[in-house]
């Protein structure tokens, strides 16, 4: 019984982290699906989202606003607004001019952008990590009479619900809306979509904006969950989310969700049963193994190389 409780606790922790990885992974997967490049600066966009949310929360607190839903919603809107503007601007400045060149060039440009954004926040906000106030406290406990207590915090519930809402909204948007249809068309064949009168530049910008907005949601959630932010906080999270995107099959949105969850669970199982220090090693090894044995990922379509 105790083992089962311990296992379920790890499972819950894993799913919590995993669902935020999935939110970030969507940004990678959508961009890759449409223009075939790895948006290396995406992790930094997520970090900026977390910072903006913290700035908004602190600002509201100093204004005397104390009602929790208002704080959360305002923080969320601010973070999404700043992050998606950032995503838009990054695409405009660093990616659009190099689009269509040799594959390595956009990637190197993205690495440069990632270093730039990290240092931008570092210079403006300092390099120390800053505490994120725990707004949502408490939780439900299970198995109190047994030795090990399993807990499900309200924060974790919030993360699940928010992620679920975002994913549903995104799926509906992609499936039903005009822009969503155009997104799918562009990811199938950019040239053809252009010929058929779709403003592909606008769709590519929209992809970056959507990805950045979801990353900002993840930034707020994970910032609160971990309790602190620092300028390097996006780098590892970005890598993990990219791993999740590849795991699920890059280019596929359900794949990114599945990949995020699997990666999160794998990580928390590692730290629960082996050692917390090696959880990053496990996720990168997982990435290497997936790429070796199933490069298309779990839900990806095989890519046909045309001559």
């Amino acid at each position: 019984m105790q083992d089962l409780l311990y296992f379920s606790q790890q499972l819950i922790n894993g799913l919590t982290i995993g669902s935020t990885y999935a939110l970030i992974a969507i940004g990678y997967t959508m961009v890759y699906g449409i223009i075939g490049m790895i948006n290396f600066a995406h992790g930094e966009i997520y970090m900026i989202g977390a910072y903006t949310a913290l700035i908004a929360i602190t600002g509201l607190a100093s204004l005397g606003v104390a009602w929790l839903p208002v704080i959360l919603i305002v923080a969320l809107i601010c973070a999404m607004l700043v992050s998606s503007s950032m995503g838009w601007a990054v695409e405009r400045v660093a990616y659009r001019p190099v689009r269509g060149r040799h594959r390595l060039i956009p990637l190197i440009s993205a690495i440069g952008m990632s270093i730039f954004l990290q240092n931008y926040v570092h210079l403006a906000q300092g390099s120390r990590n800053i505490g994120f106030p725990a707004l949502i406290e408490g939780g439900v406990q299970f198995g109190a009479s047994e030795g090990f207590q399993m807990s499900l915090s309200y924060m974790q519930i919030t993360i699940f619900i928010t992620t679920l809402i975002c994913m549903t909204a995104l799926s509906l948007f992609i499936a039903r809306s005009k822009t969503g249809r155009a997104c799918r068309a562009v990811s199938q064949d950019l040239g053809m979509a252009n010929l058929l009168g779709i403003d592909t530049n606008r769709i590519i910008s929209a992809t970056f904006v959507i990805g950045a907005a979801l990353a900002a949601v993840a930034g707020l959630l994970l910032g609160m969950y971990y309790g602190s932010v620092d300028p390097l906080f996006g780098f590892i999270a970005g890598l993990k989310a990219f791993t999740a995107a590849v795991l699920g099959g890059i280019g596929s949105i359900p794949g990114a969700m599945l990949g995020g969850l699997i990666l999160g669970v794998a990580e928390s199982m590692t730290s629960g049963y082996l050692s917390g220090e090696y959880k990053d090693v496990i996720s990168f090894s997982l990435l290497i193994l997936i790429l070796l044995f199933k490069p298309t990922g779990l839900l990806g379509k095989p890519e046909v190389e045309k001559i």
């Binding site: 900026i48 910072y51 903006t52 602190t58 600002g59 700043v82 800053i130 505490g131």
Partner: peptide
Amino acid sequence: FITVIIAYPILGLNLVAEGTSVKL
């Protein structure tokens, strides 16, 4: 407008840690 949005919150508002709490 975008320039202001991406520059002002990060550059113009600084988070300062004061003990355990954060001030803007």
